[in-house]
């Protein structure tokens, strides 16, 4: 187990290094000169150009800049934004918490509703409930995020306001609100600002998870050991929860594991539509401006997070299914 984890950790770090290196190289390949970006495209006199190059370490070769970059990163300094001089470390601290909270609630909705509805649909196969949930799941998975976002904004925010519904029945359509939290738990009215973006963030994947959970559950429910469990006279709920669900969750866990990365680091559209200042929309904004330090700094952390999430999924497999052994030993 330990050697497996060490090996996987090493692999994860290798992935991070590779991803950052590719991004670093790409910024030198795509058109655009850093000085032009820094100077707002104004013609810069040579002496000013030299000053800027020295200040930002651009007077070094590409290799030199690459080494300098890693040297900084390994000392915990992600650099400063070219465009507005903001510290990338500070930017990360501000944005990561916002992203994590939104991702947590998005994921919670996905898991609770996705798995819950999937299991019920499987247990009540071909019932009206199964048909309706199947239809809704496909629809949710197919609606573009920004369309769903705008629909919810108008349906639960704009129209209630125009129809003079009471305040408690209206949802804010933008922003973070009071920004009051206990870790990930919204305090006061914070939940009203959270709920719409969390629903939108969760919707697409909830549809997928519902379908995957249903399919996996149907397979498991037909397995011999489930029949045996039923034959032993166990209660139906015990059979479903203790015997079937645990095994049916394996493929779902894979999807959820991959989704964590998407929810945390690249929820660009949801964050943009609801003006939720998270990592995804921030990376997008700075990428448009070719602001290398910010994009590299934040994207590196997202990649690192993704690699760690992937590792945790593998560990989760072994917990759910003891037959899966996290070992490097050869099995004859």
């Amino acid at each position: 187990m330990a050697s497996y984890l060490i090996r996987r950790l090493g692999l994860a770090l290798l992935v991070v290094w590779g991803a950052v290196t590719i991004m670093f190289v790409m910024f030198f390949v795509i058109p655009g000169n850093t000085i032009d970006i820094l100077s707002g495209e104004k013609v810069v006199r040579p002496e000013i150009r030299r000053t800027i190059e020295k200040e930002w370490g651009l007077d070094k070769s590409v290799t030199g800049q690459y080494v300098h970059y890693w040297n900084r990163v390994l000392h915990g300094d992600l650099g400063k934004s070219y465009s507005n001089n903001r510290s990338v470390n500070e930017l990360f601290k501000q944005r990561a918490a916002n992203s994590a909270r939104l991702a947590f609630w998005g994921l919670t909705i996905e898991i609770v509703f996705g798995i819950g509805i999937g299991v019920i649909a499987a247990v009540r196969k071909y019932s009206l409930l199964d048909v309706v949930t199947g239809f809704v799941a496909v629809a949710l998975a197919g609606i573009p995020v920004f369309v769903l976002g705008l629909l919810l904004q108008y349906g639960l925010g704009v129209r209630p306001a125009q129809w003079n519904w009471p305040r408690w029945a209206r949802f804010p359509v933008q922003g973070m609100g009071p920004n009051r939290w206990f870790v990930v738990i919204p305090l006061g009215h914070q939940w009203k600002y959270l709920i719409l973006p969390a629903i939108v963030l969760a919707c697409v994947q909830t549809g997928f998870i519902t379908r995957i959970s249903r399919t996996s559950m149907l397979e498991v429910l037909n397995a011999d050991y489930v029949r045996t469990a039923r034959a032993k006279g166990l209660r139906s709920s015990t059979v479903i929860v203790k015997h079937a669900l645990r095994n049916a969750l394996l493929p779902t866990l894979t999807v959820i594991g991959l989704d964590v990365i998407g929810l945390f680091g690249v929820a660009v559209l949801t964050e943009t539509v609801f003006n939720w200042p998270g990592l995804g929309s921030t990376i997008r904004d700075y990428a448009f401006a070719q602001d290398v330090p910010v994009v590299l700094g934040l994207a590196s952390i997202v990649v690192l997070f993704g690699a760690m999430a992937s590792l945790l999924v593998d560990v989760g497999y072994s917990i759910l299914d003891p037959r899966v052994r996290l070992t490097t030993e050869k099995v004859d």
Binding site: G149, L150, Q153, Y154, G157, V158, A161, Q162, R170, P172, V173, Q174, G175, T272, V273, F274, N275
Partner: peptide, 11 residues
């Protein structure tokens, strides 16, 4: 577009 929605919601 969402800024306009925010305006329409009276915010």
């Amino acid at each position: 577009i969402s800024a306009y929605a925010d305006f329409e919601a009276g915010n």
